[in-house]
Design a protein around this nucleic acid. Structure first.
Lengths: 261, 261
DNA sequence: CGTGCTGTTGAGGACGATCAATGACGGTGG
DNA sequence: CCACCGTCATTGATCGTCCTCAACAGCACG
């Protein structure tokens, strides 16, 4: 009745725990306390809306599995994707802190997802009893802002090819950061277009260019990275804006090597 | 020697106090405590760098008077302005929470400014002793993110005219929010171009169009709003993303009236 | 076996960039 | 006080990236 509450299954919250640790929430006790307040909801279908904007029961949503995106529809029914979201990412922090904002911004599942929710009421209590938690959420918001700045810069200043390459690089890096090593980026060309401010037609041509240039694999109907290095080079990608731990330090080396050549 | 520390002059910190109140920092005691840690530095000249990125003494900077912008230079020495900053705005929160990030992003004074600083060390203490403060800063970061999302949407999806109009609208609204009623927007066409991802030449033509359309005054060499309503209409401006209190509710009415026509 | 979404290809056109030159203004130093 | 310089604003011409429109193929879905 209270939204399919379930006993937390082993592993279901791993992504969230990983996220909090990357946000420097040091206290294991704080972490465990938060996790207890998470209600899990499995099986959100692709295309489905993750954040229920009409529900009176206000709650924070966190993605536990799958890929989603935060986006907004415009008057002319074009769509701007602000950010992609991966397991561990908070979907609607803004609705907690600034509920007046972004009425029309929604979060939609791109693949099959499962999500966790924390009631805003519970969050109020958690934050007042565990101040460190607030700092972690704050950090999460600043990371989101950093990603937005990078995207702004890309859309505003770079040509279509490096722009698309950058977006793919970001997704690859973020997937790796949560230990998903697959070279396949689970988003469509339509999504790339809506995220990069380009037409689908043009994105398609750019993707083909990237395939010819050896950055993406020749396999059609999917965005599969053939060479991370080549892609990063074409994108002029500097992943520092993602504030990632060292687990990806190989990227930096790659980039420096390319810079020399 | 420690950065021209001064006794806080009457009124110098008003902008900051106003800001904290708008961020829902309710406790007057908390507010007064923070203000005591602010060191004031007057007379930053236009073009000067506000955030000293090389100083070993890490500190948070807040704008107290004047206009500044957060921006980044690219390889091809084009410049992207992320946000404009007004009295009360925090200039480099990101450098406190995620110091690895945005090494190359800098804050530059656009007009004569005065700034306040709080040492990171002091901030650590303040935050641990006044948890509410952290929530206020968090809110500030989310507001910044909201502004970035709106800008992203504008640059990505709108033509040059509404884009420029939107940026001007935003500046006007933000100035009004801090009780600066002047119709003159204190930024140059160059700044508009760098913020909107357009060439200066094109911005100039758009500005002239906006003048012909009655949105800006005919006065050359300055961006002076002739009709807020006309401008908001051309921009399709919905200021909710700025999360402003009711002091500007007249705007909303204006927009609704225009929507009917 | 249609229907819909994604991907692909071609042709034409538009919006905005780039290049180039000039004027106006403010500040600086001789 | 004036000559000089840099920044900002303005105008004209050309060019190119990317959009739009249009059509179709493949695949997944019911």
């Amino acid at each position: 009745m209270v939204g399919m509450m379930k006993p937390p299954e082993a592993g279901a919250l791993d992504a969230l725990a990983l996220k909090f640790r990357s946000l420097e929430l040091d206290s294991e006790a704080d972490l465990q306390t938060v996790l207890r307040f998470v209600k899990i909801r499995e099986a959100v279908s692709p295309g489905e809306n993750i954040v229920d904007t009409r529900s009176p029961r206000r709650q924070l949503t966190v993605l536990l599995a799958g890929v989603a995106c935060l986006h907004k529809k415009l008057e002319d029914d074009s769509r701007q994707i602000y950010t992609f979201q991966y397991p561990g990412d908070f979907c609607d922090l803004h609705r907690y802190m600034l509920p007046e904002l972004d009425q029309k911004a929604t979060v939609t599942a791109l693949t099959a997802c499962s999500i966790g929710t924390i009631r805003h009421d519970d969050l109020d209590q958690l934050l007042s009893q565990h101040p460190k938690l607030g700092l972690a959420f704050w950090r999460a918001s600043m990371l989101e802002a950093s990603i937005l700045r990078e995207r702004l810069l890309n859309i505003s200043r770079r040509a279509a090819l490096p722009r698309v390459a950058s977006i793919i690089c970001e997704q690859l890096a973020r997937l790796e950061a949560i230990n998903i090593k697959s070279a396949v980026i689970p988003i469509t060309q339509v999504d790339l277009a809506d995220a990069g401010g380009l037409s689908v037609v043009h994105v398609n041509r750019i993707v083909q260019d990237l395939r010819k240039l050896g950055a993406l694999s020749k396999k059609t109907r999917t965005i599969e990275v053939a060479s991370k290095e080549r892609l990063a080079q074409l994108a002029n990608f500097d992943r520092r804006y993602l504030n990632m731990p060292d687990l990806l330090s190989d990227w930096k080396i790659d980039i420096e090597e390319l810079a020399d050549s």
